[in-house]
Design a protein around this nucleic acid. Structure first.
Lengths: 247, 247
DNA sequence: AATGGACGTTAACATAGGTAAGGTCATTGC
DNA sequence: GCAATGACCTTACCTATGTTAACGTCCATT
């Protein structure tokens, strides 16, 4: 097992054996599987669990009355849905599987237990949720200011770096299950223009994308095209905040 | 004093006198004033406090290397910056005043104290931060899927309803200090097109905007143009989650 | 009263990106 | 084997929005 969550959290802080055991135990408690394209939670439902994506890709999305769909976020292996979601009465959006997905449901009690007994995990989870918020903000910038080519390049950089943090890349390649339609729904552009844009990135040798595999031969070059600044992912380990709970 | 934070939190839950006193006391501890256009926090700084906007409007924003600026969020009276911000090493964006602004700085200790002694407040603050996240998601939808007219209408609906929750409206009017440039930086469009779009909304009698005052004669009509669904603001009091901490 | 800046407005023109339509290729089911 | 489907790709055409450049108004400053 690749344990993407642990792998990712360790980008931020060191976890003890007890911490890691706890995380593994919680992730094993209630496991559910979903087929590709299936909804994990529907808009309007009352959330009962925090969902942890253990395997596969999922997304948040919202659909307007007239059918337009916007993908709001991607969940990659090791990603969690909102920690505090219990506070809300109902979901204002849906979460759907992109590939076949394995999800661990974390109950409120299990979560509270963990918060009390494992301050290191708690802090790491807050970090992870702040990073998720930072990503959402960066998407706002992406949609508001960047043109199609920059936007696409930016998304690819972000996904690649996040996959790397979860241990889901090898060299300069990763699995890339998104269809051009989904890319369009993410970046606010038509599939036709997604296609044009991908062609352009291919022609400049910035990406190789074939058979659901993405290769980025020169990440820095792609970042330059995208005006990509990775600071919002807060991945530098120095960022951790050492406090009295230090073991 | 209008106490916009208390007013807003009471949209979600009932607060005891002790709760309200606590909030007032914390808000009075460290007060700072900023001039219009002044930065409250710069990208790159280490955040030391949670900022509460007591009076005036502020915004989060990010600037790309080449100067393009995107406003990522607005802070209206009663709004808080990220609760958990202490966890991060440095700000990945800036916060700037739009109007002259009064800010209460909340220290980590004050915040922790409050979390321990006032579970009702704690819960209400988590609610407020989940709503902020929901707003950010809705902005993603706005920028990704809606055209200029819908986008503008949507923003105006959201701001008006949020101001209402903070007690900053009278009838169908509110102060509206944003310049057309700032609207453009928010909605990802040129100032010229902002102007065209506002003209169009005026011509349809959907808004009156003059002398920094916005009037929305028929909010429902504006919502219809915007495909605006207020559920993401989670303002219905029934939404509160009553748990063992009930007093 | 003159100057300058911030903001709003308008017009003429340019273009990024949308729409519609249709084609290829692989996969699946009958 | 053939129809149906879904992903991808392409072309031709069209439009929403950007760009540039004027110009007007209102204030604050001198």
């Amino acid at each position: 097992m690749r344990r993407p969550l642990i792998r990712k959290l360790e980008k931020f802080t060191r976890l003890s054996h007890a911490d890691k055991d706890m995380l593994l135990r919680i992730a094993a408690q209630r496991v559910r599987r979903f087929a590709a394209r299936e909804d994990i939670i529907h808009e309007g439902e009352k959330p009962e669990f925090i969902n942890l994506i253990s395997e596969g890709w999922a997304c948040r999305y919202k659909t307007l009355e007239d059918g337009r769909r916007q993908i709001i976020a991607f969940f990659l292996p090791g990603d969690l849905c909102d920690l505090n979601v219990f506070v809300l009465k109902e979901m204002d959006h849906s979460i759907g599987a992109i590939t076949p997905v394995v999800v661990s449901e974390i109950s409120r009690t299990a979560f509270d237990e963990m918060m009390i007994g494992h301050p290191r995990i708690t802090q790491a989870l807050w970090w992870e949720s702040l990073v998720a918020a930072a990503i959402q903000r960066e998407w706002t910038v992406n949609l508001g200011q960047r043109d199609a080519l920059e936007r696409m390049a930016h998304l690819l950089c972000e996904l690649f770096i996040r996959l790397e943090a979860a241990g889901c890349t090898s060299n300069s390649s990763c699995e890339f299950p998104l269809t051009q339609t989904e890319l369009g729904e993410t970046l606010g552009m038509s599939t036709v223009h997604v296609n044009r844009t991908l062609q352009e990135l291919r022609a400049s040798n910035l990406i190789v994308l074939r058979d659901r595999t993405l290769t980025i031969p020169n990440l820095q070059a792609l970042q330059d095209v995208a005006l990509f600044n990775p600071n919002y992912l807060h991945l530098d380990r120095e960022g951790r905040h050492l406090d009295a709970n230090e073991e």
